[in-house]
């Protein structure tokens, strides 16, 4: 007898780890690089300084984890937003493929961008 396993718990695990990583790390990063530096409240770090931080393997690993988890968090939540918010239950399989597929493609792009920084 074969049992059909649902991938839902795995998707939910990625969703919840991504939600936690996003909540812990994104506000401070977005505040600094999206608002504080652009408005000149503090001067942005020099290129040398930022390049030194970015090329550190620990930074790259943390950023890669954040990108992958945050993307799968988006995929899972946005999938249900489309189902429920826009009443698109009939298109459920297509939406799931587009959301998780988008997150997978985004993760590969993130890997390329971060490895190039090394």
């Amino acid at each position: 007898m074969t049992t059909k396993r649902s991938p839902e718990p795995f998707a939910w695990l990625l969703f919840s780890s991504g939600g936690m990583a996003a909540a812990m790390l994104i506000p401070v990063l977005l505040l600094l690089f999206g608002i504080v530096f652009p408005l000149g409240w503090l001067s942005a770090p020099s290129h040398d300084r930022l390049a030194a931080v970015l090329t550190h393997p620990v930074t790259l690993l943390v950023l890669f984890g954040l990108c992958v988890l945050a993307l799968f968090h988006w995929a899972h939540r946005f999938r249900y937003t489309l189902y429920d918010g826009l009443q698109l239950r009939k298109a459920a399989p297509v939406i799931a493929v587009l959301c998780y597929g988008g997150a997978a493609v985004g993760s590969v792009i993130a890997a390329f961008v971060l490895i190039r920084a090394l």
Partner: peptide, 28 residues
């Protein structure tokens, strides 16, 4: 609904972060 929509901005941040990283690694 606003809470669910926050995920779109989480995804936007990933795009923004990768653009920053790509810019830094391309030089000053």
């Amino acid at each position: 609904v606003l809470r669910e929509l926050s995920s779109v901005f989480v995804a936007w941040f990933v795009v923004y972060l990768l653009l920053l990283v790509a810019a830094v690694s391309s030089g000053n």
